[in-house]
């Protein structure tokens, strides 16, 4: 016997697409950080636009996902299973927030903010690429808990 209280999935994606995207994201962010807030800015803007497209328009508009579908997927075997598009899309939204903070760091000439936000985005992207682990998704539940009960101390556990 099994019961499910979650709603059925509207949009499905090949799970290898987001992971491929996370690998590209890691490289772009790493290069942007190495080049620094000045020379790295175009790359940071590129990444911000990519995150924004994935988060706001959907994964099919995410440029790296598009690249995956156009170049890699035709050469690969069809995926063993499809995945709900909502988790990877949520991850794009979390990435977008970090990228925007990093951009703000450049705009207000706070290199520390740029490095910190871009560095955290890189940690999340690398975790996704290497371990298929979604840090943003984990923060989701914590955010919900904090959002509902702001004054409550978190139980030990």
């Amino acid at each position: 016997m099994s019961s499910e209280q979650t709603t059925p999935t509207p949009e499905l994606v090949d799970p290898r697409g987001p992971r491929f995207g996370a690998a590209i994201t890691s490289v772009v962010l790493a290069l942007a950080i190495i080049l620094g807030p000045g020379w790295g800015l175009p790359l940071l803007i590129l990444q911000t636009v990519a995150f924004a497209a994935g988060a706001l328009l959907g994964l099919s508009y995410q440029p790296y996902s598009w690249l995956y579908r156009r170049t890699l997927r035709p050469r690969l075997a069809s995926p063993t299973e499809l995945e709900d598009a909502r988790p990877p899309r949520f991850a794009q939204a979390v990435g977008l927030v970090f990228a925007l903070v990093a951009l703000a760091g450049v705009l207000v000439s706070l290199p520390t903010l740029f490095y910190l936000a871009a560095g955290l985005a890189l940690v999340a992207a690398a975790l996704n690429a290497v371990f298929n682990y979604c840090l943003g998704c984990e923060l989701y539940l914590l955010g919900k808990r904090l959002g509902t009960r702001p004054a409550r101390t978190v139980a030990n556990g």
Binding site: L35, G36, Y115, A118, L122, V123, L127
Partner: peptide, 23 residues
């Protein structure tokens, strides 16, 4: 040079955290 260290730090952090979780 700062950027290189940040990237290395971020990657080490990701690998350590991911590996720990994996276990």
């Amino acid at each position: 040079m700062t950027g290189v260290w940040i990237v290395l730090g971020a990657l080490v952090l990701a690998l350590a955290f991911g590996g720990y979780r994996q276990l």
